[in-house]
Amino acid sequence: MSNYDESNSELLTIELNLLFEGIYQRYGYDFRNYSKAHIRRRVLSRLALSNLTTVTELLDKVLREPEFFKVFLDDLSINVTEMFRDPQFYQSFRENIVPKLKTYTFIKIWHAGCSTGEEVYSLAILLHEEGLLDRCQIYATDFNRKVLEIAKEGVYQKAEMEQFENNYIKSGGQHKLSDYYKSMYGSVILRKDLSKRIVFADHNLVTDSVFAEVNLIMCRNVLIYFEKQLQNKVLNLFHESLIPSGILCLGTKESIKFTSVDSKFEIVDPKQKIFKKKII
C-alpha cells in the first residue's frame, strides 16, 4: 500500500512536478508533459519496490545516484510491444502504402519510439517481401539506450513467437515467420539481412529536433502517453520531417483530430491511422 491517499494527493501532485523538473534539469529527459495517470502509477510502484516513503525521497536519490536514475528511467519507458502488433495495420500498409513506396527510387523511413525493435523488424520483413528493403534506409530511434541495445541484437523469446506468428499470418505475410529467424535454446535470433538497412539511434522526441527528411514516419503508441500540447509539438516535428506527400503512421487509438496538424494531413486509412502530408 502506498503512502499516498486522498489526504495528501495534492502533495503528491506537487512532488511529482518537482521530481520531473529535477530530472529535466539534472539529466535532460523531459517527462513534464507526459500524461499523469500512467506516470504516477510507475512512480508509486518504484517507491514500493525501492522501499521509499515519499516522492521527495525518490527525487533525492534520483538526483544523487545516476545509476539509480537509469533504473527509474526504465520504469518510465513503455517497452511492451509485439511483432506485427495490430495485424490489420500491416495489411493496410501493404495495400495502401507499398504501391506508393514502389514509385520511389530511394525510401527513407523513420520509426520513432522503436523500443525493443519488434515492430521495426516487422516492417523490414514486410518491405523485404515487397522487394523494397534494399531501396530503404530505416532510422529506428528511442530515448532509452537499453532498449536500443536489445533492438540491435534482434534476439527475442521463443515463447512469444506463436503470438507473433499469428499476427504475421493475419497481417498478410507471404511466408512463415520462422523463415526469418533461427531458434537457439529458449531464444530466437532474427536473420541479419533484416537489419542491414536499419540504423538504430538515440533520439528523444520531446527534447530533440528534426534529424532527417524522410518519406515515411511510423510512431505507434507513443503519443498516447503525452499531454495534448506535447502531442502537438511532436506532430509538428513529424510534419516538418516529412517530404510533401510523405506518410505518417500512428497507433490505432491515436489521432490527429483536434490537433494543430489536423489540416496539414489527408487521411489514407482512418481506422489504421495512416495519414499523408498535404503538398501545400
Binding site: A37, H38, T81, N221, I224, G251, K253
Partner: peptide, 21 residues
C-alpha cells in the same frame, strides 16, 4: 475502454490510454 489498451482518468477529467503490460 478500447480493447487491448488500459483506460485511465486524468486529473483534468479527460481520458488517457496506455499499452502498458
Amino acid at each position: 475502454a478500447p480493447p487491448n489498451y488500459h483506460l485511465q482518468v486524468e486529473a483534468d477529467l479527460s481520458f488517457s490510454l496506455s499499452t502498458d503490460k
